[in-house]
Design a protein around this nucleic acid. Structure first.
Lengths: 233, 233
DNA sequence: ATGGATAATAACTATATACATATTATCCGA
DNA sequence: TCGGATAATATGTATATAGTTATTATCCAT
């Protein structure tokens, strides 16, 4: 598999990678500067830069002007995982996607949710509980708050026709957010909705989405038992 | 925060991003080609390329030769999470790190583990169970198999002095692997080791590390209750 | 020694240019 | 109409060159 590059910059990159892995250049060591490597590999400095820059982005090298480039001391493996829209994820597994609204109301969020939403007391939010199904079996259910001050249009959207997730992605430009994964134990309520046993271990994903400083939406998605989140190293 | 670029390519990137988010260029739409954008922004094509290439890597654009560049239709959020060596993670939280070996034996893995290890019957592996502590409280425990055929040196390493995790990172060049996150329910044994209640929801991480086609090590790490894995969107 | 100006350095950015490559569109003959 | 050769095109890669910027090292005056 390795060594199948046609590119110069990829060839340089894998050779550098090889030297790091073979401990020819060890963690903490400085490696030759771009110009020297360019000469060694018989290519332009820009090409070396392209190779090294990406390795730095991946966390394998530390680069600083004038100080040079060194092999990262505590290499932390970076896993990239992509969180697709649930419909896409379910359909990509060959299942038929369907979703239903369990409850919908406009209300002021309770104290616990208010902090996450950065909401002032009395501010109205749309509270949605929805269930996403794969082949008629519950796959994940979500408990979501949407900030109506940030997204007034959401008040009159028919979320049975399009999931909140998808509607938001399509209609609300957003800028960032946080995501956290944790393990929870199925409550009686969880079990009833997901049709699993009370006490099962469930993966939960908490997400907050921001736009212009405001929290647009905060959601907890609770997955069916046995759900695995996979990534490549 | 936005608009604080000094670079041309970053300025181009955020402007493109803005147009995507503002739905000036909508999902599925083709955007102008590099040369046109270069002219519009008054910069070189290489600069536009740099900006767009990264957006494509982030999954916001789809680019194909001759076909051009379009806004991704089903934008799946990509979260980057880094998995540091446990010692570093624990120490970075201001806790004192300590680890102990619960059990250690050389054995042929049982059938269930053999598949994951791609091991032939009778092949010897090192089986390690270790507990990582933060401030004297259990943080995570791991059940690990190390392929002695791939890493013969491991047989006589003192893993009380350095954790297997760290020793492997430092001493075995590796090429790739898989990682999976799931939620499990604490068994009696889990509870005893982690000093938690049986039935607690625990985050589990399964990892397989390869080198030259061989599986170097397969490990399951089971975290203390309440553990959260966080990432930025 | 200490601090501050100055020089040296290595990565960072940008440009023009050129060629490679994948993919689409077109055209032509069977 | 179908298939295959051919042209057109947008992105991908590589290079030489040049200027920018952050950081370190040095040197000098106090």
């Amino acid at each position: 598999m390795r060594g199948a590059e046609i590119n110069t910059w990829q060839a340089v990159q894998t050779e550098v990678l090889r030297r790091i892995r073979a401990h020819i250049w060890r963690p903490g060591d400085a490696i030759p500067h771009e110009e020297a490597l360019a000469e060694e590999f018989g290519c332009a400095r820009a090409t070396v830069n392209r190779a090294l820059r990406q390795l730095a982005e991946d966390g394998l090298l530390d680069r600083r002007r004038k100080a040079g480039t060194r092999v990262t001391l505590n290499p932390s493996r970076k896993a990239k995982l992509d969180i697709p829209v649930l419909r896409v994820e379910i359909e990509s597994k060959g299942m038929r996607y369907f979703h239903e609204i369990v409850s919908r109301e406009v209300a002021a969020p309770p104290l616990a949710a208010r902090a996450r939403l950065q909401a002032k007391p009395g501010e109205e939010h749309l509270h949605l509980v929805a269930l996403h199904m794969g082949d008629d079996a519950p796959y994940v259910y979500e408990d979501r708050w949407i900030n109506l001050a940030a997204v007034p249009k959401a008040r009159k959207v028919d979320f049975t026709a399009i999931s909140a997730n998808e509607w938001l992605v399509r209609n609300v430009p957003f800028e960032g957010g946080e995501i956290a994964f944790s393990a929870v134990v199925a409550t009686k309520r969880d079990a009833a909705i997901l049709r699993c046993a009370q006490g099962d271990g469930l993966m939960a994903i908490d997400r907050i989405t921001r736009r212009a400083g405001q929290v647009v939406t905060a959601v907890r998605q609770t997955f069916k038992p046995g759900y695995q989140l996979q990534a490549q190293l």
